[in-house]
């Protein structure tokens, strides 16, 4: 484990230095991410402006949900974003190199490039939470704050786990680009809504089958005290971060198993 952490640090440093070589690019990337997130913010903002509330949640509560989702997305972007590159790594045979080096291929995949855009994500997430949290009537407790931090981390792991499992399919299916786009769109667009608007069946689907609930809805319901909107008991909601951690562990296992099906393009 200590070895892995050291390797991760070294690889991250290399990737970071590579990106910083082009300073202007750094700024353009951050602005790009800001624009992208601002687009989603405007989407929700215009809806709230035109309709007043969404599925019984006040604008402040919806914005808390949005901020939490954005924060867990930036955790995902920081640590796991490169898992979307599995297709490319398999097509070009870059994976050959990973197999030859003396550290985990998964780690090398994560650090093949440093994602600068997450700074834009982090800025937006922090700004939204800073504005929305005081506006929603929340009874704070140190443990609640701690739980929220853990839930945000676990939400990032869950999004990463889905994309990683998707990426692992590329070893056999070769091209899974549209699935990447689908996960991105579904999380980016529908993860921002209080999921009870999809009805009971929809919210069950989004908890069990396509687990959107864990990146925004459940944590926001706990923090704002709107657990009445959930379809399951509140004590289960408190345990929800475990799903993200378990999901990531399972996805890494699946990735390692699928990578045995790798056939080098031989170049």
């Amino acid at each position: 484990m200590a070895d892995l952490l050291r390797d991760f640090r070294i690889l991250l440093r290399v990737a970071w230095l590579t990106e910083l070589e082009h300073k202007a690019n750094f700024f353009i990337s951050v602005i790009g991410a800001l624009a992208f997130n601002a687009g989603q913010l405007l989407f929700i903002g215009v809806l709230l402006n035109a309709f007043g509330s969404i599925a019984g949640w006040t604008p402040a509560e919806v914005m808390v949900l949005f901020g939490i989702r954005m924060a867990s997305h930036s955790m995902y972007a920081f640590f796991f974003r490169r898992v979307i590159d599995v297709d490319l790594v398999v097509h070009t045979g870059e994976f050959d190199r990973y197999l030859l080096r003396p550290t985990s291929p998964f780690l090398q995949l994560l650090t093949r490039r440093f994602n600068l855009q997450q700074f834009g994500d982090v800025i937006v997430a922090a700004a939204i939470l800073a504005v929305a949290l005081p506006k929603a009537s929340i009874t704070w407790h140190p443990l609640l704050a701690l739980w929220l931090v853990i839930a945000i981390g676990a939400g990032g792991m869950l999004e990463g786990a889905l994309q990683l499992a998707r990426g692992a399919l590329a070893f056999r299916l070769q091209n899974t680009q549209s699935l990447t786009a689908l996960i991105d769109t579904v999380f980016g667009t529908y993860g921002n809504f209080p999921l009870q608007i999809f009805g009971t069946l929809g919210s069950i689907l989004f908890t069990v089958v396509l687990p959107l609930a864990f990146v925004g809805w459940i944590p926001a319901a706990i923090v704002t005290g709107r657990t009445d909107s959930l379809w399951f008991p509140t004590w289960l909601a408190w345990l929800s971060p475990a799903v993200g951690v378990a999901g990531m562990a399972a996805a890494i296992f699946f990735f390692t198993r699928q990578s045995r099906h790798y056939s080098s393009p031989g170049s």
Binding site: N25, I28, S29, V30, I31, G32, A35, F36, G39
Partner: peptide
């Protein structure tokens, strides 16, 4: 002009979609 096109693409995509 630039090897990394993600930044400009994101800006374009966001503005155009909205």
């Amino acid at each position: 002009w630039t090897t990394d096109t993600r930044g400009p693409f994101y800006i374009y995509r966001a503005v155009a979609s909205f």
